[in-house]
Simulated assay, not measured.
Amino acid sequence: MSFESLGLSPALLKNLADEHFTIPTPIQLAAIPAIMNKKDVLAIAKTGSGKTASYVLPLIMNLGHVEPAKNRHINTLILVPTRELAEQIKGVFTSLAKNLTPPIKTLAVYGGSSINPQMIAMQGVNVLIATPGRLIELVESNAVHLSSIQMLVLDEADKMLSLGFKEEVDKIISLLPRKRQNILLSATLNSDLENINQLVLKDPTIIKIEDDELEEAPIDSINQLAYLVSPEKKGPYLRQLIEKQDMQQVLIFASSIFQVDAIVNKLCKNNIKARAIHGKKSQGSRTESLSLFKAGKLRVLVATDLMARGIDINNLPFVINYELPRSPKDYIHRIGRTGRADNIGTAISLITPSELHHFTVIEKKIKKSIPLIDIEREGK
């Protein structure tokens, strides 16, 4: 099926073509018609499935049939766990809603940034994308009113609950009008999510995209390989890889903030332009680093797993796992940053002898054998 078959407007179809959206993903095929029909939706799908567009597109369509937002009375609210995800969703709205009449004003608000500019920018907003804590601050300051909400989205609801936002989410829901459309998206379905589901959703359309559908599809367009390297040689070999393969845009993952900063310091000392993105960086620094990287003006971005949720680049050629993540699912999420939108990508993992067992567990989970090169033998 095509996007044309889903009943989207010609203006939206043009914007989709401009953004190189070609064929709807499984979650888009299932969710777009249900949301356009004003149904409540519970969607279980992993990151990289195309779930953001699966609700942004029908919400844009539905916004054309609702009363324009009154001053500071928004009609669409999207709750998210992180500021990076908030900005990413805002970017999708901006690109897909461009040149539409009437225009749709979208705003992302989150902590870690001054609240005053966000309060001023609230004027005339249709779609508000917010982290729970900052939204409550804005409500308590009378900077935004939730009594006119017609559409509520909880994106990455599982992540919100695991990060301890349950009380804030419950408080926000209690402030909303009872009659509204609700959309809940999550990577997993657990008991906490079931409770939120029962509290929020009414007779929902349930969409579940199986793990195998999601995990195998993106990996097919990624060249995966690994290098066996001793811990003391890992840093020098990383720099050698970047220079030898002339990597001009590479995303590197490390397991801790300390390790991320250490990698960046070493790269910069060796004249490889790199910046860090993690939870202890200011919002301004994180936004600037991500913008430079997306624009191709920064050669290397080094990130922790949580920060990777806002990194969505269609043509990213390289991802490097400086250390293996804890779970195979995190590995899939990491390497899924490359090989997107039908582009071929390369994912490289630097494996120490102590990580070999965990490496084989990942191979079994993704049902693929990843070539492992011993750099000691390679150099002989």
Results as ranks from 00 to 15, higher is better:
P103R: 09
I222Y: 01
L100Q: 14
K166Q: 15
L96R: 04
L290N: 07
M247N: 08
L316Q: 06
L6R: 02
D40T: 03
S354E: 14
E378Y: 01
A217F: 08
I375N: 05
A341P: 05
N270K: 15
I206A: 08
D40S: 01
N315H: 14
T25A: 09
L107F: 06
N142I: 01
I348K: 03
L292T: 01
V127L: 06
I44P: 00
L63C: 11
G112V: 02
G91H: 00
L350N: 02
Q118G: 07
D342T: 12
H333V: 06
I370V: 12
I242H: 10
F253N: 03
S148M: 09
A295H: 07
I149Y: 11
S114A: 15
E378D: 09
R134W: 04
K269S: 12
K280M: 12
L306G: 07
S5E: 14
A187D: 06
R377L: 14
R286C: 06
P117G: 09
D155R: 03
L241W: 05
E232Y: 11
L77D: 07
N271T: 12
G336Y: 09
V200D: 03
S285A: 15
F258T: 13
P317D: 07
E363G: 11
L16P: 01
K368D: 01
S230V: 07
A86K: 01
L138W: 04
K294T: 15
S174V: 01
A17T: 12
I120E: 13
R239Q: 15
G64C: 07
S186C: 10
N182G: 09
Y331F: 15
S256G: 09
Y227A: 10
K179Y: 11
F93T: 02
T287K: 14
K329L: 10
H333G: 05
H65N: 14
M307N: 11
D155G: 04
T52F: 01
I136S: 08
G112Q: 04
F165P: 09
N223W: 00
D330M: 02
E156D: 05
I173G: 05
K297D: 14
G284T: 12
R134K: 12
G339I: 01
R286W: 03
R72P: 06
